[in-house]
Nucleic acid binder design. Structure first.
Lengths: 144, 144
DNA sequence: ATATATTAAGTGTATATACACATAATTTCA
DNA sequence: TGAAATTATGTGTATATACACTTAATATAT
């Protein structure tokens, strides 16, 4: 049944598969570095904390747009960050809206993981070499 | 507290964050197309079925290496494919080993989703334009 | 002013992911 | 040959992800 192999060979070139594969692999590498900090935090959680450090007073919906993360996914991720004490959440004047912001602990954890994140980032940059800029541009194209 | 924004601005350029973001976004797009097939299958499941169509008689551990997917993750993903009737699993002569292969239903579902996958793939390729080849190469670099 | 529509966020369910640990089969070696 | 080491896989737990549906608050329109 080698005709089967040929028949589906086109599907082996799937961009979605490749991107997911890379995402798994890179995430693990970043997480290994982050673990060295002694903090129980992962790359995804860092990315949300960093987003909150840059833009405050945004609703969950707005944040989810920024992160290209499904709103309900973000809701659950925020819950964990809250439980860990890295963010504080308050309701707005409009009682439907919720606003989260970095807590003191959240800032401290970012300070602590920064050098380890840098190692992961530099290691990854090295893999891409001079293609770095273009690669980042192309990733961006895929998030529109 | 705008010093905070500056302080953590370096972290906004995280490659792990960008790749995960793209992975989420592209996965959703592929899944929307796959949904049009009427089959209850997603891009990740397709990628495993396709892998099985290309390489049979591989253990779960070997497959997990191929897919750069944690072995225990793959175990659970295979369980769902089995439940859906798209793969068949047997033990090897070495009683520890398990081998999965595409079932008749599995092949049929690949046949059925193929045109929808193509639409998703072409749409994604279009976003990348002439950078496609290089982008694929760079993704590969990140899975080593 | 109140019924209706809209909007923001949460919940139920299912799958994806991975680490730490457990189990079972086989291999190795004394 | 039988104990110890190795190997292949599974399970417990926690987080990530997203779709369908729900709830609660606000805005709108008559």
């Amino acid at each position: 049944m080698d005709s089967q192999k040929k028949k589906y060979s086109e599907l082996t070139d799937c961009l979605c598969t490749s991107i997911r594969k890379s995402a798994r692999n890179i995430s693990q590498k970043y997480n290994e570095h982050l673990k060295q900090s002694g903090e129980k935090i992962n790359a995804n959680q860092v990315s949300i904390l960093v987003t909150l450090s840059q833009i405050e007073n945004k609703t969950i919906s707005e944040l989810s747009n920024q992160l290209k993360m499904e709103r309900t996914t973000l809701t659950r991720n925020l819950k964990i960050l809250d439980k860990s004490g890295w963010i504080k959440t308050n309701y707005g004047l409009d009682g439907r809206m919720k606003f989260s912001k970095l807590s003191k602990n959240g800032k401290q954890v970012l300070d602590k993981i920064l050098p380890h994140w840098k190692k992961a980032q530099n290691q990854t940059k090295k893999l891409l070499g001079e293609d770095l800029q273009l690669f980042q541009q192309n990733l961006k194209k895929l998030t529109l």
